[in-house]
Design a protein around this nucleic acid. Sequence first.
DNA 1: TAGATTGTTAATCGATTAACAATC
DNA 2: TAGATTGTTAATCGATTAACAATC
Lengths: 214, 214
Amino acid sequence: MIHKEGKAVVIPTAVIKRLPKYHRHLGKLLKKGVEKISSREFGEIVGVSAPQLRQDLNHFGNFGQQGYGYNVEKLYNALAKVMGIEKKSNMVLVGVGNLGQALISATDFKRRGFNLCTAFDINPRLVGMTINGIKVRDIANLEQYIKDNDINIGIIAVPEETAQDVADKLVLAGVKGIWNFAPVDLKVSKEVSVENEHLTEGLLRLSFKIKGEI
Amino acid sequence: MIHKEGKAVVIPTAVIKRLPKYHRHLGKLLKKGVEKISSREFGEIVGVSAPQLRQDLNHFGNFGQQGYGYNVEKLYNALAKVMGIEKKSNMVLVGVGNLGQALISATDFKRRGFNLCTAFDINPRLVGMTINGIKVRDIANLEQYIKDNDINIGIIAVPEETAQDVADKLVLAGVKGIWNFAPVDLKVSKEVSVENEHLTEGLLRLSFKIKGEI
DNA sequence: TAGATTGTTAATCGATTAACAATC
DNA sequence: TAGATTGTTAATCGATTAACAATC
């Protein structure tokens, strides 16, 4: 629960969805050396209206300054804190197939405060290998590893059929969040958060837009 | 533009977002041999309310029957048609790095009416290879290939820095849609649709949910 | 026919935008 | 101080839910 001036506030889901985009663009501006930006300019960059941007940010605090705008670095750090990425999150990956290997090699989220500690697979040919500095372990050791290494996020990159099973194990071991790439709607106890990457859904939406707009 | 009873209707974006999920679950029900389903039962499965489900579907036609519910197969096919996947879409992939190779090997979207024809890369060590039956070609041939092979979707799996450049080339060659995996907001002419898979954004949302809900 | 469940209108809820006073 | 731009309230817009007549 977020608190603002002592009161508990529920953040609208629509706002939460936009925060990562704000953070990403602030990172780019920071890299470019931009010091300050107005809600109008920044709204244009991220594709939202200026009032919406101000509304969104004001759920978390008053980061701007009248007559000036927003300090890019300050806002960047504030949003990082809001999203809980100033302190790194430890993650494990389950499933070292093609997608799993791609995730091991991905650099984008490492830069954003996430730390992939190890990977697990059921395939004995993969177990023991080290890919891009990440050791692949036997899935039998999943629970113990999670408990011993302060892991709070599990990434699921296994086939559809075993995804729920892996999710159950992750929850049992005590992860707080699951980043799921299997095309399944996982059922987990409601203390655990799930974020689905149902890639094919994006492709179907694209198809709809193309074919529906003739 | 969708037409219903001769009138042009704009479909709310919120509805469009849910269609792929409906389609996926209908496919699963069909496989299970379920013949009919009520909006209440199906709503429970997909996680929306029964009235919302009926509202959503009625944007496209009256697929149900009072006192009976919906015929699973009929609805499945109707939605496939709505999303434009009864006729296969031809796609090309640009960027055969780790993620690109994972996409080449992905089976999920092949089942859903999408046909990956070939891949392109700039790296001479990859050009000429065949991965999982998909030939890797030199990116110099991108435009000609798209024009010659009735390609309407381009998949971008190249690094951030070159993504916009690739998008420009795809648009110039005449694709109608871009499925983008680079963490960039592409700028394209508005006749072309873009669907972004900004994976890290999902992870940041997950982090927010975990850290924000203490 | 009676029971079930849709299709659809009206009511509610939530999210976005407009407007402007506060203030740097 | 004057100009700029925020923070915030009120108005509008869009999406969801409730309710029920239509009908299989």
